[in-house]
Design a binder for these strands. Structure first.
Lengths: 216, 216
DNA sequence: TGTACATCAGTGAACGCGCGTTCACTGATGTAC
DNA sequence: TGTACATCAGTGAACGCGCGTTCACTGATGTAC
């Protein structure tokens, strides 16, 4: 069965590396990391499996490329959400607003692209920081750090609570996405899900806020 | 190569279902859900792969048995931690103590038995509630609910914050375990890890506590 | 401007692997009479 | 108490599958002269 490779017999594809990554990404989008299969990606591009080895060391490198892409998409989703809500004058209030936006972007991405989300966090052969940048170098992570710093500057967050706050906040949001998406809580009706998400975001705010003598 | 099946030729094993589950559990313990392979479990018990089909419908049922066991072990770890710390007289304080114990039991189990923990939450073929009991019927979940109710009774938690609190708390602790264990944060040095866990638990307490006019 | 040739980017067939599962079977067990 | 026989719990060989990967190759491209 001759695959329907585009038009005039292009023996040299010209951009095979990208085409394969794209195909692999589509597989991941549909079926998660398990669905990223080198042979299938080649099949979809209309190329022999061997050809992939001109551009990737093997399956591991291919899936790492997808992973990288998925992480980029997640970051983009967060940044979009960040830019969506208008800034508010009060500095503390604006920090909370940005915090909520980052969290919302995270879980919304998880739900709109479950396959990519799962791929972004799937185990890969090589250790995480060898795979590329470490999480802390990532833009959303830095935005989160900034938000936390702002909360400190404004007096809403004390130094003890500031410590490791990135990871703790991340954990809440990540755990929420995982439990709702693939954990024992999938199948939760959509409205309940959204209520939980809203509650979780408020919970994060409360957990970071240092007790005050008077509640505003 | 004749497998070393125990002593006198026991053609009938007598307890093969349990033996296979145990072998499969050991595989999961070592290598996580991916390592649960029907043929290998049979091999370790010293029995032909076909024999397994007398006791399990197939691979799916075998891994579900392991999953069930892993969840039971997780629950046990939490209950042990719960019983470890002595009760304190103040009711609110005791609720916080129990809350911390449940969370600590959760992440400690994840770290002491990473393979089982991963298996407990791996995707299985059949939908979660068909696999057996739903999460809410589980003892630790009920303990958590009780703790939250106590916090309400004591005035530390208002009704708005009470809603969905189980899931939110669970998310934080689960996300923490996942990120530290298999996520981008594995390889975190142990002491940093423990500091993060401690911080997360305090964060949960703060996130649940309703603001007071005076801080105790 | 044309040609020789190195290099690049593909092909196609095949390998070995180990899995889950099925088939027809046989050895052991226990129950009815 | 002994024997016939149904049932149960195993065996062993084989199936098909699809994967990742390697091999020797060939068609296309571009550069030197």
């Amino acid at each position: 069965v001759t695959p329907p490779r585009s038009e005039r017999g292009a023996y040299h594809h010209g951009d095979l590396a990208n085409a394969l990554t794209k195909a692999a990404t589509d597989l991941a989008r549909t079926g998660g990391p398990e669905a990223v299969v080198l042979r299938e990606a080649a099949r979809q591009v209309g190329v022999s499996p061997t050809a992939a080895y001109r551009h990737f060391a093997g399956h591991g490198e291919l899936i790492d490329a997808v992973k990288q892409y998925a992480l980029t998409r997640l970051a983009a989703a967060m940044e979009i959400e960040l830019a969506a809500a208008p800034a508010v004058p009060d500095r503390a209030e604006d920090a909370y607003r940005r915090l909520a936006a980052l969290g919302l972007g995270y879980v919304r991405f998880a739900f709109s692209e479950p396959g990519l989300f799962r791929t972004a966090f799937c185990r890969s052969e090589k250790p995480p920081e060898a795979a590329g940048i470490t999480a802390a170098d990532t833009r959303p992570y830095q935005f989160l750090s900034e938000v936390l710093d702002d909360l400190v500057a404004v007096g809403a967050l004390d130094e003890v609570r500031r410590e490791h706050a990135e990871l703790v906040v991340w954990s809440t949001v990540h755990g929420l996405a995982v439990l709702l998406l693939e954990g024992p809580l999938r199948q939760l009706p959509e409205e309940a899900r959204e209520a939980v998400v809203a509650r979780a975001i408020a919970f994060v705010r409360d957990g970071l806020t240092v007790p005050r003598t008077m509640q505003s």
